[in-house]
Design a protein around this nucleic acid. Sequence first.
RNA 1: GGCCCGUUCGUUCAGCGGUUAGGACGCCGGCCUCUCACGCCGGUAACACGGGUUCGAGUCCCGUACGGGCUACCA
Length: 466
Amino acid sequence: MVKVRFAPSPTGYLHIGGARTALVNYLYAQKTGGKFVLRIEDTDENRSTKDMTAAILEGLEWLKIQWDEGPFFQSERKELHQECALKLLERGFAYRCFCSKEEIEERKKRLENPAEWKYDKNCRAISKEESDKRAATEKFVIRCKIPEGKIEWNDFVKGKISFNSSEIEDFVVLRSDGSPTYNLSVVADDYSLGITHILRGEDHISNTPKQLAIYKGLGIEPPLFGHLPLILGKDRKKLSKRHGTTSVIAFKKEGILSLALFNFLASLGTNIDEEKCLSREEIARRFEIEKIKKSSSVFDYDKLLFLNGKLISEMDLNELKEELKNFWEFQEFPDDKALAVTRTRSRTLIELSKNLIPFIKEDFEYDESSLSKIDKEKTSKYFGQFIFHLEKISEWIQDKIEQELRGFAEEKGLKAKDLIHPSRLFLVGKGESPSIFDLFYAMGKEKSLRRLKRGLNFIKSGGKDV
RNA sequence: GGCCCGUUCGUUCAGCGGUUAGGACGCCGGCCUCUCACGCCGGUAACACGGGUUCGAGUCCCGUACGGGCUACCA
């Protein structure tokens, strides 16, 4: 059975790149009926925090990327990792290295090009007896012995990838303080958890030969590897957790819907529909790991907004209401009619809620430029009568309102616009809104007339609210 | 610098030896119209370059250029 994992290190919020990796793993597990494991790689004492762990879980939960097992914490599995290091040592695939950091630094500096430094295998030659003896009194690290030849694997995203062993140094698997190093922990955990496929960012490609060496040293079968192209920012640089604006939770706060982000992430590098939002189930059904692109893609916020806007206009109304609640700060909640006329012109929940405010809040301000555009003279002269006409309407629906408005305009020799524009400004405080008749209808007779009267007073008093 | 990976419109996804190189976002224009959106219609725009292989190459191979990743007793 397929078993995959997402193994973030809690040194920052869940960002877009991590979420994408998690998503691909999740989708692959869903598609194959396998299991998806969550493991927190919190072995970096200094940088890992509980808060960040919680933040990552929050991000995953919000996106509804559900894991089947875990979260496991790498920091709680140190003994296992150490056992593996010892086993490597016993089997002769690792050795103690007594070189101090200073000594290494010294030798490195002597190189014509220190950047090309790789551990010089100085301690590989030390005999077992001597090593055991020195171990009692000296500090040491354990290094993995990289075998001669080539290390290669058939990456199921990238195809065949090959490294020359000479390019890989005998890296540290166990530090001088006895703590395991990343590559060792990963292998030990992936193996003990029974991970069958490792799907991770391509920034891990260079770790793979090292991990393969450990698998070999341990005498165990390695899983299959697939390296996903990275998601790049507009500058075509790796999108990283250092870019605060890429945090998943930040998108939530910006009024992006979880399903929209889910769709957007799923569409990157895959042939999954990007014209409209699909359900999570449908995405999993369509997901094909073999079709993931080899090249990286740029994060396009406009596309996300498009998807989000589309979802807002088309999703189930009750669900939309639930989502909106997180962004709504007034006691009274807008009704279905108000939602119906504003949703198609809102790309985020924040926009939606802004568009809805005039339906609830009475004392909004009038937009300066829209205010300057209306004819104050005509408005003062005719609006009182216009309001009077509206008041007479018994059945408050679009057709009747329109009939009345146009009729009144004609009667007074006005253009419909002369009534529509001020009405719009008085109803929502700005120059843009749904169709005026829809707006009147959605707002209801009572509220509409109250706003109209307030507006008229405002104009008559020369710009003072009364 | 070294090693690894990549390269189709500005962005994104198709195309998997023979296509007028297609869709979407964005942008531009039009329709609708009371505004802004939505929607609909139309337009703009790409196979990085050079060699091969082949009757024929965006599709296969090799270089070059460019881009990215990694290069810790971090994960």
